[in-house]
Simulated assay, not measured.
Amino acid sequence: MRRLAAGWWRRLALCLPLLVAGCATHLSTINAPAITQSGPRPDVDVRRLSPRPYTPPDWPESLEARVLLPDTPADARRPAALLVHGGGWQRRTPDDMEEIAERLARRGYVTVNVAYRFAPEHRFPAQLHDLQQAMAWIHEHADAWRIDTERIVGVGYSSGAHLVSLLGVSANVDALAKPHGGDHARLAAVLAGGLPSDLMKFDDGRLVVEFIGGTRAEKSEAYRQASPITHVDADAPPHFLFHGRWDGLVPVDHATDFHAALVDHGVTSELYLQHYRGHFTSFLLRDGAIEAGIAFLDRQLLDD
Rank of each mutant, 00 (worst) to 15 (best):
L69F: 13
P60F: 14
V20N: 02
D45M: 01
P51D: 10
D75M: 00
Y54V: 05
S28V: 08
A34G: 10
L69G: 02
A65H: 04
T36D: 11
V46T: 10
N31Q: 11
A32V: 14
T29D: 02
P57V: 07
A34R: 07
S38H: 08
Q37M: 15
T25K: 02
P51N: 08
H26S: 02
T72N: 00
D75G: 00
S28C: 12
L68M: 10
A21T: 06
S38D: 15
P53N: 06
L18F: 15
T25V: 14
T25D: 08
P40W: 13
D45W: 08
D71A: 05
R52T: 14
V46W: 14
P33C: 06
E64G: 01
T36H: 05
C23K: 02
P56A: 05
A32L: 14
V20R: 06
I35R: 07
R48S: 12
P56E: 12
P57S: 10
L68I: 03
P53V: 10
S38V: 09
L69I: 15
W59R: 01
P70F: 12
A24C: 11
P56M: 07
D43G: 08
D43M: 07
P70T: 08
S50H: 10
N31R: 07
G39N: 08
T36M: 09
T55W: 13
D45L: 06
L19R: 00
I30G: 00
I30W: 11
P60Q: 09
H26N: 02
I30S: 06
G22C: 04
L68D: 12
L49E: 15
V67T: 11
P40G: 06
P53W: 12
I35L: 09
C23A: 11
I30T: 11
P70H: 07
R48H: 06
P17M: 04
A65T: 11
R52Y: 11
V44Q: 05
W59Q: 03
Y54S: 03
D58N: 09
L63P: 09
E64D: 15
I30D: 11
V44N: 03
L49Q: 13
R41C: 01
A34D: 15
P51T: 08
P40N: 02
W59D: 07
E64W: 11
L63N: 04
G39R: 05
L63F: 14
W59H: 10
E64R: 06
E61D: 05
P17I: 06
R41M: 07
V44A: 01
A34F: 12
A21E: 06
A24Y: 13
L68G: 02
V46S: 04
R66Q: 15
C23E: 10
I35S: 13
D43T: 13
Q37N: 15
R48I: 09
V20D: 06
S38T: 14
E61N: 01
